[in-house]
Design a protein around this nucleic acid. Structure first.
Length: 667
DNA sequence: GACTAACGTTTTTTT
DNA sequence: AACGTTAGTC
């Protein structure tokens, strides 16, 4: 059997996890314990036991995790089996479910999904319209409250603050009127459909008999309820996670789900993977000594399979400039002296803002680097605009994308017209598109604007017609539409630099290319829009495709590993972050640091500064209280001055050798 | 309706 | 320090 090899290479705990296929199973997989390998072997084992591939479902949180798991499985089983099973995110699973059954909740099946920026745009409008209280309420605050309510299983109308509740109701009505759902709705509605409609539930339970949930520590209570609907007796469900790596509590993740798994699925088989293959003993010991300070966790002590190792350095820095320069120099020196690749180095930080100085230091020394995250592709203006055009080709009645590009590029339909059209559409309970099409409306506006509106209608309708006829490739239609709208010249005009111009053009082109790739695979335009809506930022195979040292936030680093890791800014207020000190979630910050430390394979350096520039102002810093929690056995406390004092500069070195040579010559 | 200038706010993490 | 928003002007 093909799997014999992988089976034998597993350790006893892993082997047990792979062997037990029936009933609830919880795999507590510490950092670097071969989690993904174990899960993929387990799924391969299912196939070996003649479980039909279509019955297998594996749910992840990110698209990246899903595609990684898909790839790993594909390497172990037949092509057909890999294609027949379902490996996807919670959200895309829900989209699939709702495309079939959302009509039961009074939405049309061609609903669209609004992104975060769409949500903000809508909420801004509502705040202006409802402008009840005169204090400035930020859209994100209201949206956050709504999201929290939805994830806790409450009706947004039940939010305590009356004004917020009022906005929440208006928001939800608006989305419904536009046949649009937000990210949270996907889960809320899917759970609702399953709970209230036994027929749908039975179909799903019949279809997916074997459910695996990855990164289970990141599930929130809504996802837990969804899972309960999805999995029926005899509960062939396997969850994999590590409570010590739960770092998404701020968006509702409940460590409780992993701590109380058996409350939901009785008598689970609990398997602990504690053998770490990634890090040296020194790194692991330090990590263990930190996480021990957290209460109420599944006791777990990672054992290292790699003895010894370099000491973990804790370096005191005078300021953030020196910190960045020190690290850049170390990378430079490490690369040439120890013969490492750029890709072997990673610098981890708490907030994106901390990357600026590091980037600068890298650039000065011509060290190639890759920044993970930061400006996300799908938040780029031109990308969102082009996607809005694409969305109109499916349903011009979607107000949000319509309003987005109504005057992008400028075509003489400005804000005032947009407001009039929106108001008219509201009065007549129609979409903005219908308002623009309605002669009764267009006669109420000036003739110049009217002609602009008519031209716009013709532009969109013409392109949509080509789509509906199904004769042309949607990518070609979209390309032609963008060209006809003269979108590129308009966006280019707003650019300051050549490289910006180039970036915009590439953004537009890559949306079209990506649509083409989708339609090549036989997917519909709607499916492309779904994928784009759910595709989040840091998932464009960034890491593999780009070369260089890695600059990355602690959150984004989870699941990755690097031979040499620098973890910067171990200062009170940054790590732990001041906000989490206020929120009383210091435990989570400790886990965040734990995640950071356990990314390191061979060598780890922690740094903290005495001062740092914040908002253009110099501020003093205190060392993180976490430093005192680390066990000293494998620590090397040192400072910037110590290291620079001990290591002579290149000048001093050549001088020294010059003298030496002189002495030798003399003799 | 478009452009510019001043102002205020931001910096935790993201499906 | 840098970005986005808003108000004021053409």
């Amino acid at each position: 059997m093909a799997n014999d090899f992988s089976f034998r290479s597993l350790n006893p705990a892993q082997r047990q996890a792979v062997a037990v296929l029936d009933g609830p199973v919880m795999i507590l997989a510490g950092a670097g314990t071969g989690k993904t390998r174990t899960v993929t072997c387990r799924i391969a084992h299912m196939l070996e036991k003649k479980i039909p591939a279509p019955e297998i479902l594996a749910v992840t949180f990110t698209n990246k995790a899903a595609s990684e798991m898909r790839d790993r499985i594909a390497g172990m089983v037949t092509k057909k089996a890999a294609a027949d099973m379902t490996v996807c995110t919670f959200h895309s699973l829900c989209v699939r479910l709702l495309r079939g059954g959302i009509d039961k909740l009074g939405y049309k099946k061609n609903f669209s999904i609004c992104s975060h920026s769409d949500q903000v745009g809508l909420m801004k409008q509502l705040l202006v319209r409802k402008g009840g209280s005169d204090e400035k309420v930020k859209p994100d605050t209201v949206l956050g409250a709504i999201s929290k309510a939805k994830n806790m299983g409450l009706d947004p109308a039940a939010i305590e603050d009356d004004y917020f509740a009022h906005l929440a109701v208006a928001y939800q009505n608006e989305l419904r009127a536009q046949n649009t759902v937000d990210f949270d709705d996907l889960l809320v509605f899917a759970e609702k459909v399953l709970r209230e409609h036994a027929d749908v539930r039975d179909v799903f339970r019949e279809r997916y008999q074997r459910v695996t949930v990855d990164e289970f520590q990141d599930t929130n209570s809504l996802q837990m309820r969804l899972l309960q609907q999805l999995v029926g007796k005899p509960y062939h469900v396997c969850v994999v996670g590590d409570d010590d790596q739960s770092i998404y509590g701020w968006r509702g993740a409940e460590v409780a789900n992993i701590l109380e798994f058996e409350r939901f699925f009785p008598h689970p088989k609990v398997i602990r993977l504690e053998e770490n293959y990634r890090s040296t003993h020194a790194v692991l010991h330090t990590a263990n000594s930190l996480i021990r300070h957290n209460r109420g966790r599944h006791e777990k002590v990672l054992r290292s399979t790699r003895l010894g190792g370099d000491l973990v350095r804790i370096v005191a820095m005078p300021g953030d400039d020196e910190e960045a320069e020190f690290i850049a120099e170390e990378i430079l020196a490490g690369k040439s002296a120890v013969g490492r690749q750029w890709e072997d180095f990673a610098v981890l930080f708490r907030t994106n803002g901390q990357s600026r100085k590091l980037e600068l230091a890298m650039r000065e020394r011509k060290i190639p680097y890759r920044m993970v995250g930061a400006q996300s592709f799908y938040d780029r203006r031109e990308v969102r605009d082009v996607l809005a055009y694409a969305q109109l080709l499916v349903s011009p009645e979607a107000d949000v994308p319509l309003l987005r590009i109504l005057n992008a590029p400028n075509r003489g339909i400005g804000q005032s017209t947009a407001v009039l059209a929106t108001e008219w559409s509201r009065e007549h309970h129609e979409s903005v598109w219908q308002a623009l099409c309605d002669p009764n409306f267009t006669h109420s506006i000036g003739s110049k604007t009217r002609h602009s509106v008519e031209a716009f209608i013709a532009l969109i309708a013409g392109a949509k017609n080509r789509i509906d006829l199904k004769r042309d490739n949607p990518a070609d239609v979209l390309h032609a539409l963008i060209h006809e709208a003269a979108y590129l010249p308009w966006i280019e005009r707003g650019c300051k630099t050549d490289s910006e111009r180039q970036q915009r053009a590439e953004g537009i082109q890559s949306v079209i290319d990506s649509l083409r790739a989708h339609t090549m695979k036989g997917k519909k335009l709607q499916a492309f829009l779904d994928d784009s809506a759910l595709a989040s930022d840091r998932e464009d195979e960034d890491l593999e495709s780009k070369q260089g040292a890695t600059l990355i936030t602690l959150h984004a680093s989870k699941g990755l590993e690097f031979p040499i890791v620098f973890l910067v800014g171990l200062e009170e207020g940054y790590l732990p972050h001041s906000r989490s000190i206020a929120d009383g979630t210091k435990d989570e910050e400790r886990r965040l640091l734990y995640v950071g430390i356990t990314r390191a394979q061979d060598n780890l350096t922690l740094t903290y500064c005495a001062k740092r520039i914040k908002w253009g102002q110099e501020t003093g810093c205190q060392p993180s209280s976490f430093i005192a929690e680390l066990d000293d056995t494998y620590l090397d406390h040192t400072s910037y001055d110590d290291i620079l004092g001990a290591e002579p500069s290149a000048d001093e070195l050549s001088h020294f050798f010059g003298n030496l040579k002189g002495m030798l010559d003399d003799t």
